[in-house]
């Protein structure tokens, strides 16, 4: 029996690139509404590849991804747009749009042929801007916003898409510390208060870990096995208790300190 809050699952999923770059295999993962899950791992472990595979942007090498009870591979892109929304780290060139116009693009899966917005669409756009605290910026051009403000707008766009699942690939990497903390808090609230299933890859462990419910750790695999990464999953307290975080950076002079929930140098 699957609990009703479980929205996205994988069974025997293998992610990677053909012909011979296998990142991870036999993955049985699950995301639930109300969870904020962190995808952690050293650079090059394949976090982005896994996110792309989960979002359907890249085909799975084996196994399957199910979302809302349907197989991802059989879901048309137009329907996918109502199930998963994505936030990336890279800047976009949409500087000549206002914040509200950019967020309104998130309504595209619901609007008609020419993308005309209904009164309801406009209400949802305002609500999304309000949720990320950017309503007063709605008529500002995106090009005049700071990186942190812009990333909030991209998050509002994902909210306007009204999907149960939001996947984010290093959403805070260009942001200053205040914006990082703010963004993490926002993601926590979206999961806790709005019932979204949130999965984000990040290196900002100090800011993210206290707010997250679950974590997926991509760690080095046994060299004898085909896949380059192995996955350890669990709730954050479980993973802290088992010392799993120390497996994120083997042979590096850092160690995870459970009392502060942060990494520190071993030489101290």
């Amino acid at each position: 029996m699957t609990p009703p809050s479980e929205i996205m699952t994988t069974h025997g999923l293998a992610a990677g690139y053909l012909p011979d770059k296998l990142i991870a295999d036999s993955l049985d993962l699950s995301l639930s509404r109300g969870d904020m899950t962190l995808l952690l791992g050293a650079n090059g472990r394949g976090k982005s590849t896994l996110l792309r595979t989960l979002s359907g942007a890249q085909p799975a090498l084996a196994g399957k991804v199910s979302i809302a009870g349907k197989s991802l591979a059989d879901t048309p892109v137009a329907d996918m747009a109502r199930l998963i929304s994505l936030v990336y780290t890279d800047r976009t060139h949409a500087g000549h749009l206002t914040a509200a116009e950019l967020v309104a693009l998130g309504r595209q899966p619901y609007t008609g042929f020419f993308g005309r917005l209904s009164a309801e669409d406009r209400r949802i756009v305002d609500e999304s801007l309000d949720t990320v605290g950017m309503l007063q910026f709605s008529r500002r051009y995106v090009s005049t916003l700071s990186d942190g403000e812009r990333q909030k707008i991209m998050l509002a766009r994902a909210l306007a898409q009204q999907t149960p699942v939001i996947l984010l690939d290093e959403p805070t990497s260009f942001l200053d510390i205040a914006s990082r903390i703010e963004t993490m808090q926002m993601l926590h609230d979206l999961a806790a208060d709005h019932g979204k299933a949130i999965l984000l890859s990040t290196h900002d462990i100090a800011e993210a870990l206290p707010l997250a419910t679950h974590a997926w750790l991509m760690v080095e695999n046994d060299p004898a096995l085909a896949a380059s990464s192995a996955m350890i999953t669990g709730t954050v307290p479980e993973l802290v208790a088992t010392g799993a975080f120390d497996r994120l950076f083997p042979r590096r002079p850092v160690t995870f300190d459970p009392s502060t929930m942060t990494f520190r140098s071993v030489n101290r």
Binding site: M80, A81, L86, T92, L97, Q108
Partner: peptide, 14 residues
Amino acid sequence: DALLLGERYAANLG
């Protein structure tokens, strides 16, 4: 309009 955000976001918008 969707392509203004780049291809990856456009694909995510359906």
